[in-house]
């Protein structure tokens, strides 16, 4: 473990303290990079349904079966994973880093993405080669409205969770209006919302 520079930083990371007072069988032996790759590739290959479904699978494999980290640490990783990007991938990176530092994190991320990357590439190739086939056209005509239905469901479910008061409702409405009626770029809307949210946080901290 001496290859991990954070061992000399104090205070000690949680996992070192943990090693003293509990005996996790797998912590005694270094997990190999090959095992990290293999584990996350398997998760990537079987993780259907996106988001939380994949996270539940990661939790079962890494926390319950392999006992690579404790449940609480897993939840911290998950919380941080919601800052940027897909949190299923972020959770994998976090666990990989926890086991074997930066190399472990990168290997876990690559292992997790690789199966779906190869599958999507294959399907993309098939799609762009054969999408003029009438049968495929007919089938895809059936899937298009369903995909829009899925987006509507996501918007409703997210909205019920995130819109708690008048101000969050107004932000959602403003973002909606900005893209639908004023045709603003979604990226600018996001940046504006981030600036607004950060500003409100700083303001609240100063005055209260």
């Amino acid at each position: 473990m001496e290859s991990q520079p954070q061992a000399i930083i104090s205070p000690l990371p949680i996992r070192w303290q943990r090693c003293y007072n509990c005996s996790m069988p797998n912590r005694e032996k270094k997990v190999t990079l090959a095992e990290i790759f293999q584990t996350f590739a398997k998760i990537g290959l079987t993780g259907f349904g996106g988001g939380m479904a994949i996270v539940a699978l990661i939790e079962r494999v890494c926390v319950q079966e392999k006992q690579w980290l404790g449940g609480e640490e897993f939840l911290h990783g998950l919380a941080f994973g919601q800052i940027l990007g897909p949190f299923s991938l972020n959770t994998c990176t976090f666990i990989g880093h926890h086991l074997r530092g930066i190399r472990g994190g990168i290997i876990a991320a690559v292992g997790f993405i690789l199966p779906s990357f190869l599958l999507v590439s294959l399907l993309s190739w098939l799609y762009f080669t054969y999408h003029k086939l009438p049968q495929l056209q007919a089938a895809l005509k059936g899937t298009n409205p369903v995909v829009i239905g899925l987006i509507v469901v996501v918007a409703i479910d997210m909205g019920r969770k995130q819109i708690k008061d008048v101000s969050s409702g107004l932000i959602a409405l403003a973002a909606f209006a900005a893209t639908v009626f004023f045709k603003l770029n979604a990226a600018w809307v996001l940046l504006a919302a981030a600036a607004w949210s950060l500003g409100m946080n700083i303001y609240r901290r100063r005055c209260c």
């Binding site: 409205p145 509507v152 973002a175 209006a177 639908v180 949210s197």
Partner: peptide, 26 residues
């Protein structure tokens, strides 16, 4: 906290995407 404040905007954007995509493809 900043992230929490940003998420309602994401809701608005996803709803807008459903609207835009639906209007031009259904």
């Amino acid at each position: 906290n900043t992230l929490d404040g940003l998420l309602p905007a994401v809701v608005g954007l996803v709803a807008a995407a459903a609207c835009n995509l639906g209007a031009s493809s259904l």
